[in-house]
Design a protein around this nucleic acid. Structure first.
Length: 631
RNA sequence: GGUCCCAUAGCUCAGCUGGAUAGAGCAACUGCCUUCUAAGCAGUAGGUCUUUGGUUCGAAUCCAAAUGGGAUCACCA
């Protein structure tokens, strides 16, 4: 509609004002609630050029539109704004079109290029936590939104299944897991522990011994015993110790950390882990079997968690498969002279021309680092999917620098698609008690949190729900839908880029700006429709302002999907649906529907309700949130 | 120290491609269940949009600086 008005004005602008006005001069905005009108033209930009007052311009424009655009019956000028009104029939027709389209808002399937969305990407040593929930919900939702916008989407994750950290937990399990009466070490079957939790436990165990050994070494050094340690290490130790003298507390603690690093490198346990990594890279059968077994435990644990989260993947990538390709790429870059090699054989890239630093790509012992693997994985993916036009990486904003460098290197290696890769960088989730830190045990475990949220939904629903005639499975499912819906909405309603605070009490709240608030509206509408007889919309029906407001909000849905897709922001959808539900609730609470005697009115209101429910369901689906028919 | 991100009501967040009197929710206070699900609705109160400059007819929104908070700059991932 606004496009129509705009083109009509531009076409006749010379005639109207005596000059040709450009596209950007015709600005629309939403009409404020206090004023009558369906859209508003901002007159200020035209004032200067026309050399007339806003009233004069408004009159000229308003009369012009009334005469030339069929739909426009009325206008009013307030200040520098021209409020234009459309007739009722315009809005009933809009509603009728929405009603006829069961996929309202969704673009044609696969009408846009293929895109890959990566999310989750866990470390196999650490059970999933609250931060992963934000990551998974975000990634899954963005994938859904892009699909709704017409893209072909491949959902993926990279599983970080190799490297020194994996060897750490393998080693700790071998060394410290107690044997039971059958002579077996701990495993998920004989302990009943979730596999990822069991492996995580041994990773922590490694760290404990690791730190203890390092402490011992420092004590030795402090006592002057340097036998058996490399000269360069001792020299550094002495240098740092010397530097501590006369420094303030902060500087001393920094130097102490450096000394600790030195000591850690000398611990027997780390050396053992490094040996294990070398054996793994050499495909030692014993190590390989252990690795496969323990990873298997982790994956079954993760799958259980993903299932509860309600997220899925189309394709998995394992770093153990892609790191070789990464190394090849580095060698290729080295030959081309994009990278350089230091005397100790480590490979680097110089990014100082781009205002960045030098970055390591291959260790002196020839093993690969994070960046090497990511290079390999990216290229691998474009080889696997020839139609692919870009990858979206859902990764926390602490890795902004990493991705900047990654994309830059890919570009330097000559991959043109590097430009269409995007780091969907999201902010950390803070707790009221401060930052989550695994070392301090302030991590919120994903499984625990989901269980709590569902349990809480169960208690609340028992108090106020409408569950008559539901069997136990239906009830359990409902608790899950409400609990998870609340949690997902809580994490997704905030702009992904921003750091957010996770308040446990608010996350299970059912009132106000929450998931259950939206779900409740859907359940009420379903109940309403269940009680209604057949109805059919008549496009000649009169309507009140609250009905019209709702139709206006419904009409926005396709544009909202577009915005959310372009900004990779599920929060746009979340806030839109909340607005819609608020408008609907006002209408529902103040206007009678089933008892309306005027049949045309009743049909309009029911059609409206039905389509509100449709859009609620569709938009919540884009957030990965289910909506119940009863609650 | 270099680079990047953030700052809106007591709290959590919208609004930011410049436009009318800056909006929600929570918390506080008032009302509304004998009519479609009160997980709701109606209302009261709460703001120098961190500060200072600049651009503009017009700035929460754009630019610059300051202040405060965070991240990052590893032969960790």
């Amino acid at each position: 509609m606004e496009k129509l008005i705009k083109s009509a004005i531009i076409e006749k602008s010379n005639h109207l004002f005596g000059f040709d006005c450009s596209d950007s001069l015709i600005q629309f905005q939403k009409t404020k609630k206090e004023f009558e009108g369906d859209t508003t033209l901002v007159l200020f930009p035209l004032m200067k050029l026309a050399g007339k007052s806003p009233q004069e311009i408004g009159k000229v424009l308003g009369d012009f539109l009334k005469d030339n655009v069929r739909c426009i019956r009325n206008y009013s000028i307030i200040g520098g704004f021209l409020n234009v009104s459309f007739p009722n029939s315009y809005w009933t027709r809009q509603l009728s079109e929405i009603n006829a389209d069961s996929d309202f808002g969704l673009a044609a399937k696969d009408s846009k290029p293929e895109i890959m969305v990566e999310y989750s990407s866990p470390n196999t040593n650490k059970p999933l936590h609250l931060g992963h929930l934000r990551n998974n919900f975000l990634g899954y939702s963005v994938a859904g939104i892009l699909e709704a916008f017409g893209h072909k989407v491949i959902k993926t994750q990279i599983i970080n299944d190799r490297g020194i950290h994996i060897c750490k937990s393998m080693l700790a399990w071998q060394k410290f897991s107690p044997l039971n009466e059958k002579g077996e070490r701990e495993n998920p079957e004989n302990t009943g522990m979730k596999g990822d939790k069991l492996v995580g436990k041994y990773y922590v165990e490694f760290d404990k011994h690791f730190n203890a050994e390092a402490k011992e070494i420092i004590a030795q050094w402090n006592a002057g015993q340097f036998e058996g340690y490399p000269k360069t290490t001792i020299a550094k130790y002495e240098e740092f110790t010397e530097a501590k003298k006369g420094k303030d507390e902060k500087a001393v603690s920094g130097l102490n950390d450096k000394i600790k690093e030195l000591a850690k490198n000398e611990t027997p346990i780390l050396k053992e882990a490094k040996d294990l990594l070398i054996r793994w890279e050499g495909r030692d059968p014993e190590v390989y079997l252990l690795w496969t077994t323990m990873n298997g435990w982790v994956y079954s644990g993760f799958n259980e968690t993903y299932c509860k989260m309600g997220v899925t993947f189309d394709r998995l990538y394992y770093e153990s498969d892609t790191f070789i390709l990464g190394k090849d790429l580095v060698n290729e870059g080295l030959e081309k002279g994009i990278f350089y090699q230091k005397d100790d054989r480590s490979v680097w890239i110089d990014l100082t021309d781009e205002g960045l630093d030098h970055k390591l790509l291959l260790r002196s012992d020839g093993t690969s680092v994070y960046m090497t693997q990511d290079l390999g994985t990216a290229v691998d993916r474009f080889n696997d999917y020839p139609e692919l036009t870009g990858i979206i990486y859902t990764v926390g904003n602490e890795q902004d620098y990493h991705f900047k460098v990654l994309f830059l290197i890919l570009e330097k290696l000559g991959y043109s698609w590097a430009k269409s890769c995007f780091h969907l960088s999201y902010g950390m989730v803070d707790l009221p008690t401060g930052k989550m830190k695994s070392r301090e045990g302030t991590v919120v475990d994903a499984d625990d949190l989901m269980d709590e949220v569902i349990e809480s939904a169960k208690e609340m629903t028992a108090e106020r729900g409408h569950l008559d005639g539901m069997n136990d499975t239906e009830r359990e499912n409902l608790y899950k839908v409400i609990g998870m819906g609340g949690l997902k909405y809580y994490l997704l309603k905030v702009d992904p880029k921003k750091r957010m605070l996770f308040n446990p009490a608010e996350s299970i709240e059912l009132n106000g700006h929450t998931g259950p608030f939206i779900q409740y509206a859907h359940a009420r509408i379903q109940s309403l429709l269940g009680k209604a007889n057949a109805f059919e919309l008549d496009t000649e029906t009169e309507m009140g302002t609250s009905e019209k407001e709702i139709i206006k909000q419904l009409v926005l849905y396709p544009a909202i999907i577009e915005q959310a897709a372009k900004e990779y922001a599920p929060s746009v959808i979340a806030n839109y649906t909340y607005e819609l539900v608020k408008l609907f609730n006002q209408f529902y609470q103040n206007i009678t529907i089933l008892n309306e005697t005027d049949g045309k009115q009743k049909a309009l209101r029911l059609t409206l309700s039905k389509n509100v429910a449709k859009v609620i369901k569709s938009s919540m689906h884009l957030l990965g949130i289910e909506v119940p028919d009863r609650m």
